[in-house]
Design a protein around this nucleic acid. Structure first.
Lengths: 205, 205
DNA sequence: CGTCTAAACGGACTACGGTCCGGATAATAT
DNA sequence: ATATTATCCGGACCGTAGTCCGTTTAGACG
């Protein structure tokens, strides 16, 4: 059994010099701790980079050197949950993981993604605010490829890549959160609607 | 034939006092002219509210009083094209307008929307940056309702509202633009994929 | 222990969207 | 023409994300 390293949410987060200076390590941990505190107290939207720097007792430059941007920080905070989610749909038990038919895995994927968004939605939304490359973040590419793979497995004859793109759009955190929070749509109805959607798309093949 | 007033892209843009002071009219026109100039020269992303105010020879406060926000300005700039688009799918000739079967109208709607986004994409994206209520802007609600209506017409048995939501997500300007500009996907392939998608969704009923 | 250097630090600085309010002015009434 | 007032104007001001660069320091080497 080989090493199962997950796809990072944030590009480049695995690069850089192998050893990190001790003050860098200390500051990174201070910052992550302070960030979690602030999010507990004020919500993700209430976290500003200035306040974070102040709370962590660190200069503002340090915050940006560590995380690159606000979105990068949010991705880092999400990375544990994200790694867990990835492990579950790639290597976990069926129907989410391998072993079940493609269609069932697709249905389960949507349900799991909806649950994920409901739990970490604010963070996910904040992590997506990065303007231009939200769709090319490694984790997003992985979800996309996963959906595409399952579509192919089900014999999708239309362009599977574009179909996967269309289906991914449906699971966008901002939209899901909006449906639930603003329109008061029950998460189960969203999951049910996803089931209908993928079933029709796959069956139509 | 009654008055066919279009659904405004921007909420509240029809309210306010009936008569506008002459200096207000003059400044609004100066601002719209300057905005079009700046977008021609620097693209939509290169338009900042400060530069716009300066170019129009007007105070910054005036810009925000007129348009409320940067997104509001972009919506105003789009409103002609938007009104035209709305008129075409609501009252124009088939297959986009009434007279064709629901499925054909859906297919045509997607194609028209894709063409619209390709033409006015930058503006549309800038108009959507308004954070929280992009999905509840009147024009977006109208597209949504239109799709829902056509789905019902085709006898959609699953929740038509949520299905319409899923299909709308696919036509999101940001995603479409990203697919074309970054991934180099040909617009015709997007339209074809949309056709496959709605066909399967409707046929699966 | 002293020297050296690459890495990290910090906070002043910029650009931007958006707000506010004292002052100017167009429309109207007299 | 003058006075009145509701509307509009302008630009100083604020909070925020992100950058820059002179200064500090961890840690390796002699």
């Amino acid at each position: 059994m080989w090493d199962v390293s997950f796809i990072p949410l944030r590009p480049g987060s695995l690069s850089g010099p192998v050893t990190e200076r001790s003050d860098a390590v200390r500051n990174r941990e201070r910052l992550l701790g302070a960030a979690r505190e602030l999010i507990d107290e004020c919500g993700a939207d209430g976290l500003t980079m200035d306040r974070l720097a102040e709370r962590a007792g660190v200069g503002k430059g340090t915050v940006f050197r560590r995380f690159g941007s606000r979105a990068g920080l949010m991705m880092t905070l999400l990375s544990d949950a994200e790694a867990d989610f990835q492990a579950r749909f790639m290597f976990g038990p069926p129907p989410l993981g391998p072993g079940a038919p493609g269609l069932e895995r697709l249905v389960a994927f949507g349900a799991a993604r909806i649950a994920y968004v409901l739990e970490y939605g604010e963070l996910a939304r904040a992590a997506d605010e990065s303007a231009y490359n939200r769709f090319d973040v490694p984790a997003a590419v992985l979800w996309h490829r996963h959906i595409e793979l399952l579509l192919r497995e089900e014999g999708m004859d239309a362009d599977p890549r574009l179909m996967a793109m269309a289906l991914s759009a449906t699971l966008d955190p901002e939209r899901l959160l909006h449906a639930v929070r603003v329109h008061g749509i029950a998460p189960e109805r969203l999951a049910e609607s996803w089931r209908e959607l993928v079933t029709r798309v796959v069956r139509g093949a």
